[in-house]
Write a protein that binds this DNA or RNA. Structure first.
Lengths: 331, 331
DNA sequence: CTGAAAGCGCTTACAG
DNA sequence: CTGAAAGCGCTTACAG
């Protein structure tokens, strides 16, 4: 079935069929209905390649805001973004990435405004969860996809980690390691950060079913290696954990404190940044739970483009990446 | 840069440019060189969409041979195959799948011959590793991709598991669980099957670095639940394993023997078939190592189509899927 | 509101 | 060996 064939069946022209099938208006309602009926009856499927060939001439611009500066975790997220941008380049996609540093709302809003000035058809953003960001995003009329971290606004999709599940899986690991019992401690960045909180909850829920396992401490390190070192050092002076679960950043510093203590403590981590990777290979860290950063970048762009170019929404707003367990010999 | 622009620069026609750039011959060598130079200088990249639109008119037929009948492991492999077949349908791909049962060389050769009679442009096959299969495949002139299991022939690619690495990762799990020491037993289908052998090697190499862990038994179960049950039952009467690693099929039967014994034994599995899935959820099996069956099917078709339609080979002949650790709360 | 024509960038006959 | 023309299935002006 082609546009031409439908036009012939309806006794009209291709232009008119195109207008009807793509809701471009300006068609006699009766004729429009007739064309729709024929298309439905003949199960017309537009040829995606022909359509893409035409559509690729009008550029689609997607803006990306990511606070990746100084944080190697986001290297893989960026790889995913650029890879998908390249793949969709032949379809007319142009991606403009604003990399910013840390958690500054002002800088983030600045990046959004710059992108708007450049002129974008959609925004992929890792929003800082603050009221002023929420307010700014709610003013936008272009479609938005959030990735890695979420915020409570109307959006096409969120692509990122299911933190609660991540915590549960780390809990599974703790149970494997501690067997019938032992003391576990948890170190996170901040209980104020939703994802961190969720991981702690998941971990605690998971291990709490095993009576012999006790969670003896929950510490904050502000995602900072020095604070992490100090907090863990203090912990080791006061208590006797058999296992420490690092549920956010600052892992390198914390591990250093453990190694210096000379104690035999099992270590669980999250993600696969440089220090984690190294300590995992060396057998210092027992396991880490990763969150497919590459997929987060890749899929955020894919979903947003699909929405803009093909008017297709993902099935679910929440698109969770897999929480994958990595051990010493994992690749 | 378009064909038209190159033709203008070279003072010739689009037809001639097309002949040169696609090696269709029948062009004056000097003119051909001139066109090639211009294309190189202008960094000409053919528009993939326009090309695909044309090429989609000639159907490309890929035949698939898979011994999936009666083995639910291959459900996901099939899903991957059909998903990729559908995705590439708009590019002209037609896939014909021959599902056969078990390890019968005659049936497999029959399936190959049927496909050849249907007329295929490429073959994706899970070859039984037997001389007669090897001989038959070596006669073929169409491109071949092997998936899930490999055979020593000339081919475009193998897509499947790195069994040795899979075994090593299970060894990592054993070390996590046994901590400083304990007895491990291994159950495989057959030492004659390369993949099974490799998993055993990987496991042994991995745990052998920990002095306290001993591998006290290596059993065969012919991938059969009843034989598995009997073998494990006998093992438990004679020895005292702390952990049993099932490195192939027949896991349901083996686990039943363990449960009936009432002994507290940690269990490692491979793949995520129904009994494994259930026992993992119930906390009977501690962990399993999976091999991305969906990706195996999906990627085998993708690579083969890319070779036939776009003359593109994968970077490596061996395309290993990831060995992923799944725990109780994994999704 | 409608249709004839041109065009996207490529490939495919066909005539010479 | 070469070029002019037609065609893939769609969309986009443009004239009426």
């Amino acid at each position: 079935m082609t546009v031409k064939e439908i036009a012939d069946l309806a006794g009209t022209s291709r232009g008119t069929v195109d207008r009807v099938l793509n809701d471009r208006g300006n068609v006699n309602p009766e004729l429009a209905q007739k064309i729709k009926d024929i298309a439905a009856r003949e199960n017309y499927q537009p040829n995606q390649l022909a359509r893409a060939l035409i559509n690729s001439r009008k550029r689609i611009r997607i803006g990306v805001v990511i606070h990746s500066v100084g944080n190697p975790f986001f290297d893989d997220v960026l790889k995913g973004i650029y890879s998908r941008a390249k793949k969709l380049g032949i379809y007319g996609l142009e991606v403009s990435v604003k990399q910013i540093r840390g958690y500054c709302a002002k800088e983030q809003i600045g990046a959004i405004d710059e992108l708007l000035k450049e002129g974008i058809d959609g925004l992929a953003i890792m929003p800082i969860n603050l009221p002023e960001i929420k307010a700014r995003l709610e003013q936008l009329t272009i479609p938005i996809v959030t990735f890695n971290t979420d915020i409570d606004i109307r959006k096409i999709a969120f692509v990122g980690c299911d933190y609660y599940n991540s915590g549960r899986i780390s809990g599974d690991l703790a149970k494997l390691i501690l067997g019938r019992g032992g003391n576990a401690a948890i170190v996170v960045g901040s209980f104020k950060i939703f994802g961190h909180q969720q991981r702690v909850e998941g971990f605690v829920d998971s291990v709490s079913k095993t009576p012999g396992i006790k969670v003896i401490a929950e510490l904050e390190n502000e995602d900072d290696d020095e604070q992490s070192y100090a907090a863990v050092k203090k912990l080791l002076e006061e208590q006797e954990p058999d296992l420490i679960y690092f549920a956010a950043a600052g892992i390198g510093g914390g591990v250093r404190a453990i190694l210096e203590s000379g104690r035999d403590i099992r270590i669980l981590a999250v993600d696969d940044t440089e220090p984690v990777h190294k300590y995992l290979r060396d057998g210092v860290i027992s396991a880490t739970v990763t969150q497919q950063p590459y997929v987060q970048g890749d899929n955020a762009i894919k979903i947003l483009f699909d929405y803009i170019a093909n008017n297709k929404s993902p099935r679910e707003v929440n698109n969770f990446t897999e929480n994958q367990v990595k051990l010493r010999n994992s690749k």
